[in-house]
Design a binder for these strands. Structure first.
Lengths: 119, 119
DNA sequence: TTGACATGTGACCTTTTGGTCACATATTTT
DNA sequence: AAAATATGTGACCAAAAGGTCACATGTCAA
């Protein structure tokens, strides 16, 4: 059961930050990623490298060598498989409506929420 | 950051089994879920209860009291949010094509795979 | 070839998580 | 009311994961 690796990989905040960073822009080196991580939390290069290895083993990140650098890319396929595991295509439109609603609610200002009541 | 709870909740195999079970059919009691879990692995009711609590705290499972039972329901919204976090709507069709391809490949018999070469 | 740069790996320690149990509450049945 | 059923909670221990370091390989530039 290798999907274990995917879920374990996603279970750590630093690794999710790495995915977020690669989602924003692909093809970054370890050094570049280390820099981004250190804007949020203090961590050695070794720690970042270890996290990246887990992401690669889970196939959430792919690596392409370029000279002495290794450039990292986000692979979203495992994410899609998670989605498909618990959201079937018949209920998907309903779920999407709910998440869109949630996104809307979260962009509202507090004032806009006055009077709403979800008892 | 409460999305932490979702990813932590998904990181355990027993909890994923619980979600699979509820995905198959909603509205099960703790006792019923315990039974299913014990078809796969040995675990006390206490363990299952603890796992369920984490799922509820992550809002992946909702509970409705019915007499002395508590019926559990799968809530797929957090799953959808994971999807939306790393798959934007523009690349989604591409990713879906890839996952469909993967699903197809996995239903092939070994014989059918002869001659394929993805180098 | 030599030195600087970019990165991988196994050992080690600390923190977190998984699992069980004893005890508790709430509801149904008799 | 008392017994049986269905479930929640905090304490506790064992197992797993997170983080750092020393040491290593491979690549670029001079």
């Amino acid at each position: 059961m290798e999907d274990d690796l995917v879920f374990k990989a996603l279970a750590d905040r630093t690794r999710r930050l790495l995915l977020d960073t690669l989602f924003e822009r692909d093809g970054r080196s370890l050094g570049e990623l280390e820099e981004v991580v250190n804007q949020h939390t203090e961590m050695s290069r070794y720690g970042v490298s270890k996290h990246l290895r887990l992401l690669v083993e889970a196939d959430l990140v792919t690596v392409r060598k370029s000279g002495r650098e290794r450039l990292h890319h986000l692979n979203a396929v495992p994410i899609r498989l998670i989605h498909d595991r618990w959201i079937d295509k018949y209920t998907e439109p309903h779920i999407r409506a709910l998440t869109d609603l949630k996104a809307l609610a979260e962009t509202e200002t507090p004032a806009e929420r006055e009077g709403h009541d979800d008892g």
